[in-house]
């Protein structure tokens, strides 16, 4: 393996373009290294380590948006005051990834590019209508295209990022004052747990009814899933027990879980329903 350590996005893109193939961008390595050592994925010929590109790190404000560099670690995001104020569920979700050792290395960009349906940062980003900035190598350096998070995932392990491209940033609008948002993940033990299922809800109220609703589910479909049917049940309604029931049923219908060594399909439906109900009940009382 040949190891490269670019300092700028342009340099990274150009290195990816010119190095011996296959080339792999490397961020925290917490997805890549276990796969290499377990032999489920061959080591690439070249690695381009993105961690030393200043521009890819940290949280900032940009034109009223919150902007996170792709190489920002879960620990940094969790502790970041801007994130805690503007998107508390993102802070919570990344704070529940694995353990300190992993959170210190794992990047949010890696979490998205790895495209596991269980990626913990994905659901909060779906609720936030986040956008992903993807950089492509051009003669002049780099061009950036912006992809809505909902369109980002293409299947387990697959995204819209083409070979040669990298994700540079994520951006989203801060959650407005008074909005409710919550996220929870279910595992069979409290820590070190890849989600059996996860659920996030964001609702804004106007005139006593819900004016904006976002629901998202993790680990219950080939990609982190937006809960459009559940959202439809909420929109324009007050959070009554009947609405919560209907929303729960819609969720059971629209998720497409599988049975694997961690849980059965039916059980995933049950825990999604239970988590969703609890979150909505909390929303109703807040």
């Amino acid at each position: 393996m040949i190891y490269h350590r670019p300092k700028t996005i342009e340099e990274a893109l150009s290195l990816i373009g010119r190095s011996a193939w296959p080339v792999s961008p490397l961020a925290g390595g917490t997805d890549l290294l276990p796969r290499w050592s377990a032999g489920v994925q061959d080591r690439p010929a070249s690695i381009v380590d993105l961690k030393h590109i200043e521009d890819l790190k940290g949280v900032s404000r940009a034109n009223g948006d919150i902007r996170i560099g792709a190489c920002t670690s879960m620990s940094e995001i969790e502790a970041d005051p801007l994130i805690r104020a503007a998107a508390p569920i993102l802070a919570e979700a990344v704070g529940r990834v694995a353990c300190p050792q992993i959170r210190n290395r794992a990047s949010i960009g890696g979490n998205l590019c790895n495209a596991s349906p269980a990626a913990d940062s994905a659901i909060p980003l779906l609720l936030l209508d986040a956008e992903v900035e993807v950089a492509t190598h051009t003669d002049s350096g780099a061009t950036i295209r912006t992809v809505p998070i909902e369109e980002f995932f293409k299947g387990p392990g697959a995204t819209v990022v083409a070979p040669g491209e990298i994700v540079t940033h994520l951006r989203f609008k801060p959650v407005p004052q008074g909005a409710f948002s919550a996220w929870d993940k279910f595992g069979t033990r409290p820590a070190m747990e890849i989600a059996v299922a996860s659920v996030g809800v964001a609702v804004e109220l106007g005139g006593g009814v819900i004016s904006r609703a976002r629901v998202g589910y993790g680990s219950v479909a080939p990609v982190p899933l937006r809960g459009k049917a559940a959202e439809a049940e909420l929109l324009g309604m007050a959070l009554s027990p009947e609405v919560i029931n209907r929303c729960e049923n819609a969720a059971r219908e629209e998720i497409k879980p599988i049975t694997d060594v961690r849980a059965s399909q039916a059980y995933r439906r049950d825990v999604v329903a239970a988590m969703l109900r609890r979150i909505l009940q909390r929303a109703a009382s807040s």
């Binding site: 919560i244 009940q281 109703a284 009382s285």
Partner: peptide, 11 residues
């Protein structure tokens, strides 16, 4: 418990 506590605390 829903009746008792309203849905708020039923979780």
């Amino acid at each position: 418990t829903k009746e008792q506590a309203g849905i708020a605390c039923s979780h």
